[in-house]
Amino acid sequence: MTTEPADDRPPAAGPSANLIAAGVVIALGAVAVTGAAGLGSGPGTWPMVIGVALVILGLILAVQSRRAEPPERFTRSSLLVVAAVASMIAYVAVIATIGFEIPTLLLAFVWLRFLGRESWRTSIAVSAGIVVVFYALFVGALDVTIPHLF
């Protein structure tokens, strides 16, 4: 599947991280069970079955957590992911009010220049190019109703 070189791999977290993952699964199952109980039989039966299955699977994962391959640790470079997600959230927040052109330009630029460490020249050219192509494609050719300024 993935093919990154060996030394490129973020360090593994301790086995406790597996326990956390298992805990999340159990918690999700618990939420499903609670929600399903609130719905009652009929609409709630199927989610209840899934919820119980999730709790059981979570418990198995917890039991195995010591032996299983541990998840990857979050490192400083994980901050890049946080920044990337933040940029996308900002994108969604403003697109409905100011149209997709400016947010698209900015998002592309931020990703290219700051996340991708591309040169200024490349960043500007590519992000402007993206906006033009997207506009031509989605608004011009396909007449998609995405909010747009022009």
């Binding site: 697109i95 990703w111 996340l115």
Partner: peptide, 26 residues
């Protein structure tokens, strides 16, 4: 580094076009 923002934007705009809904981008 260049492909990533293009893919991201196609994904975001593409998600919008399914139901014409900004919620789907979220």
């Amino acid at each position: 580094a260049v492909l990533a923002p293009i893919t991201v934007l196609i994904t975001l705009v593409g998600a919008y076009t399914v139901n014409n809904s900004v919620f789907d981008i979220g």
